[in-house]
């Protein structure tokens, strides 16, 4: 059984649309994901590619229960996201890192890392600090444990955010365009960490526009367009067969400079 099963979900957002004839704004809905299904196993790195506004981030947010789905269901490790009581367990199973860095500004790095495991997993402070130190070492920021968020660069904050998600010992990491707000240097810093984690067998589900990441680290690539799945292929197939045969993918890759 796949770890994450997305079963024909539909997700739409309420929007306002200007009605030319009536000369006023009317309520409308924007359907981002329509009857969307996909399965993820707990292995390797899956990269979600596609133009903006096709529902890649929305898919990740639905898996984590940050958005409620209109139709269908998502089963994470045997638990449904529709069951409010299991949401916490699901969020433990899938750690999430966002595009903007969201460290808690009132806490230093160490407390940022230990807050969740101490409160939610009942981990003792000592164990949590121990584990936090290991993870900080892994992301190369052991010296920054007493720093506040405003003393860290964007890349460093993002690395801390990854470590914070890993503190909960998740089975998979959901990464929502985590390098989009960073300059190329910091991006490579963060990607190096991800590559390391991937080689250690951490399962990741990443929305990204970093082709280098997709080419080096991904094992499977999903290409989405307009709320539906265009292609689901292994990395090698994607960059050889599909880029030649599928026009949409070819034009997307051309624009992204690949």
């Amino acid at each position: 059984m796949a770890m994450i099963e997305v079963k024909s979900i539909t997700k739409s957002f309420p929007v306002k649309k200007y009605d030319q004839a009536a000369k006023k704004y009317v309520k409308d809905t924007l359907t981002v994901l329509r009857d969307f299904s996909v399965n993820f196993d707990q292995e390797g790195v899956t990269v979600l590619l596609g133009p903006s506004g096709t529902g890649k981030s929305t898919l990740l947010r639905c898996i984590n229960g940050l958005e409620t789905i209109d139709k269908g269901d998502i089963i994470v490790d045997g638990m449904s996201v529709r069951d409010k009581h299991q949401l916490r367990k699901i969020r433990e199973t899938c750690g999430m890192v966002f595009q903007q860095t969201v460290l808690f500004p009132h806490l230093d790095v160490m407390d940022n890392l230990t807050l969740a495991p101490c409160t939610l997993l009942g981990m003792s402070k000592k164990d949590a600090v121990e584990r936090a130190k290991q993870l900080l070492d892994k992301v190369g920021l052991l010296s920054k444990e007493k720093a506040r968020h405003n003393e860290l660069s964007g890349g460093e904050q993002q690395r801390i955010a990854i470590a914070r998600a890993l503190m909960m010992n998740p089975k998979a990491l959901l990464l929502d365009e985590i390098t989009s707000a960073l300059d190329p240097e910091m991006t490579s810093e963060v990607l190096a960490i991800l590559e390391n984690l991937a080689s250690e067998g951490v399962c990741m589900l990443a929305v990204t526009h970093e082709m280098a990441f997709a080419q080096h680290v991904a094992s499977r690539i999903l290409f989405m367009d307009k709320g539906s799945l265009v292609c689901d292929a292994s990395k090698d197939d994607f960059f050889t067969i599909y880029r030649k045969e599928n026009e949409r993918i070819a034009s997307f890759l051309k624009f992204i400079g690949e």
Binding site: L66, F104, P105, L115
Partner: peptide, 25 residues
């Protein structure tokens, strides 16, 4: 809003987020 989402994503419930994250800021 991102602070709330970061809290939810880590598995906190609403009251824990209020108390441990939002109120303190």
């Amino acid at each position: 809003e991102a602070q709330w989402e970061a809290g939810y994503a880590l598995g906190f419930n609403k009251f824990q987020i209020y108390w441990k994250i939002i109120a303190r800021q």
